[in-house]
């Protein structure tokens, strides 16, 4: 992990793209402007963070901007980690896809889209990945109720489909 000073310097170098630098429990996080996510990750890659370990979503309900996308970067030679976080509002949840530069983000961005409804602009194949294709809603959002999912048995499948229409 970069120490608190190193993180501040890194955030300073990112210029206006960096909104906030958080150092918590020994872990470094930079909150960035979602519009600049691709350039930020590219800059950090040049600094040695060449491995994108994870992309995942967070819902900060009821705070706004509500949805967060977290990119966990890893520098394998210095064994250093940094998290980059971009927050997007729930009524326009759009962020640039980083899949062209980081092929590993492909499935993970699809998962974030599936679970949170964040649209990744420029993703080659943005479809649901874990939920069924015709599923409605994004279940990992905090205001999405838990339970109450109808179980479709073959015998009442027709009835269920009618009820949905």
């Amino acid at each position: 992990m970069p120490d608190a000073t190193g993180l501040e310097l890194l955030a300073h170098d990112l210029g206006e793209a960096a909104l906030e630098a958080v150092h918590y429990r020994g872990q470094a996080t930079i909150v960035v402007d979602p519009a600049h996510i691709r350039t930020v990750l590219q800059t950090l890659r040049e600094r040695g963070f060449g491995f994108l370990a994870s992309v995942h979503g967070v819902d900060y309900y009821p705070e706004e901007p509500r949805l967060g996308v977290v990119y966990e970067l890893l520098d394998m030679s210095r064994v250093d980690r940094i998290a980059v976080k971009a927050r997007v509002p729930v009524d326009a949840p759009v962020i640039d896809s980083v899949t062209p530069e980081w092929p590993t983000a492909d499935h993970q961005e699809r998962e974030v889209y599936d679970m949170f409804g964040v649209v990744f602009r420029g993703h080659p194949d943005l479809r649901r990945i874990l939920m069924p294709e015709d599923y409605e809603g994004h279940p990992q959002r905090r205001d999405f109720p838990i339970g109450g999912e109808p179980v479709i048995f073959t015998r009442d499948e027709g009835r269920w489909l009618e009820a949905r229409e």
Partner: peptide, 18 residues
């Protein structure tokens, strides 16, 4: 309140828990 990402080496690779 806070956020952490904790990676370990599982039999299949990096298993990280956020």
């Amino acid at each position: 309140p806070g956020e952490v990402y904790y990676p370990i080496e599982s039999p299949r690779g990096e298993l990280g828990c956020f």
